[in-house]
Design a protein around this nucleic acid. Structure first.
Lengths: 288, 288
DNA sequence: TTGCAAATGGAACGTGTGACTCATTTTTTA
DNA sequence: TAAAAAATGAGTCACACGTTCCATTTGCAA
């Protein structure tokens, strides 16, 4: 038989990882042109998934027939079956995180072990990230940056669950040498600290349902003083939204009763760094 | 002209999100069969990407010709062009985050605007998450949970960049009614607080390069008292590793000079919730 | 009800597809 | 070096594909 290993009893790789392993394993023993396609296939899996035999062969620099021989050598009955594996890979990778998350929640509830808990938090974080990446309002984003960039002092306001974000913002602003004030409650001097803020300053306020009463109260107070506010919150019904000049809606997926912070963190960091950059640019222009 | 809005000057959706928005917007005004396909397309985007016009039409319960009319009504010149959009979506979703991150870094450096900064932080977070998901040592994870679950008080120790994580851990432990003590430095009483810890307690210490000297010093001190330590850090050369009973290596991708915290956060939350669960289980068993 | 336009179903068509075959080249074996 | 085997290139073909066209049905206005 001319075609090498394509016998009936041989196991045909049905998933991409197995296929990949099989190819790597046989790499040495493959004919030159076949190896050429093998390399191309592993380097450009997307092209295999979507292209036609002719287009792929051209890209890989071989004849279409060689492509079919490659598939047959791996045990498939033709190029089409091989292509199915590459397509399935894209489908699975793409399978919505929401579905996975639901599955993990069920798994964790039936006590499937601690790994499920970890996976759940990772999935919740990923979901939140892809969500915000899709929904971020770019105009609001630019507006917030502009607003914060021209502030003399940036006040950062958040309690409880949102506090970690605030503390990271304060850390980052500090490293970027942007004057800022984190409003913590340790010494109970919040009201006095807020009193120093002027309309030339700006506030980043973060709060999610159930909104910490202190955050709302402080936001109201500082808003009354005419200080512009950028809010990060979770819905248009948020009490923060009414005080804010610009506000962002961030939907964080939760798991095991705790919400992810990943989307909020990403947004907060982006804001911070963008403000730093904007200030540098403005400063440069002034000098010129 | 019979085919409604397919004129030259009309903008054809080139990316999936725009397409999606367009469909949703026009939903009301679409003919019955066309609307039927529109709904199917948004519900089963993968099928559109990979199927043939005939197979898709059959699944959606319409004629192939209707499918083509649907595409034309949206401004495409045929089903094939519509399908490209669905395929592109899969390609992009699938494109490795590492590659995207590199591209975004380059983009941000050449001053491609603030959206690139945001995308960069999202990509960095996603990369970190998929990284840790792959590399988490499950045995260490279980060991850490066991160790923390039997602690009387959990001390949480972190400064600077890691501090947001510590504060979220403390928040979560509090909500789970697990006694804990966050070691902050506000009042300069850390040494005294650490002095109260006994071998019946446990510590979660978090520090990344460049390791905050205070964290290391305090970890050493508390370790000397025989208190078991769970460390989250970034390499085996970390000074924390030598003091720790269990330690995790978390590689966070960075962007614009700031590292993501998403992987560390996910691990921290998973640890916390798993400890809470373990305690509940143990308590239940004791009662029975 | 009648007339008209839009919507739909279904058949027919031409193109481009994957797979096959066979001649030629290259590699291996004796 | 000669012969055999394997690998490769290129042409061919059947067929499934997306598309078009036209007859029929449906919805609506007069």
């Amino acid at each position: 038989m001319a075609l090498g290993g394509a016998t009936m009893d041989e196991r045909v790789p049905r998933d991409f990882e197995t296929l990949r392993a099989t190819i790597l394993e046989r790499r040495q023993s493959l004919p030159k042109r076949i190896a050429q396609i093998a390399a191309y296939a592993l380097d450009n899996p997307d092209d295999i998934a979507f292209g036609t035999a002719a287009s792929i062969a051209a890209s890989a620099g071989v004849q279409p027939s060689t492509l079919i021989r490659f598939a047959q050598q791996l045990g498939f009955d033709g190029f089409t079956s091989l292509q199915q594996v590459f397509r399935e890979r894209l489908r699975e990778r793409n399978s919505s995180y929401d579905e996975r998350l639901a599955a993990l929640r069920a798994k964790a509830e039936e006590g499937a072990g601690h790994r499920a808990i970890f996976d759940g938090f990772v999935a919740a974080a990923s979901t939140s990230l892809s969500d915000i990446s899709r929904t971020l309002n770019e105009a609001h984003f630019e507006e917030a940056i502009a607003l914060l960039a021209k502030a003399e002092t940036i006040y950062v306001l958040a309690k409880r669950r949102s506090y970690p974000v605030a503390s990271y913002i304060a850390y980052a602003l500090g490293k970027l040498k942007i004057r800022n004030q984190l409003i913590e409650s340790a010494a109970g001097l919040n009201a006095e600290m807020i009193g120093f803020a002027t309309p030339a300053d700006a506030v980043i306020a973060i709060s999610f349902s159930p909104y910490a009463p202190a955050t709302i109260e402080e936001t109201r107070a500082i808003s009354d003083q005419g200080v512009p506010i950028v809010a990060i919150t979770d819905s248009s019904f948020s009490p923060l939204a009414q005080f804010a000049k610009v506000w962002f809606e961030v939907a964080e997926a939760d798991f095991g009763g705790f919400r992810s912070l990943s989307a909020t963190m990403a947004l907060a960091m982006a804001l911070t760094v963008a403000v730093g950059e904007k200030r540098r640019d403005t400063g440069r222009k002034r000098k010129v």
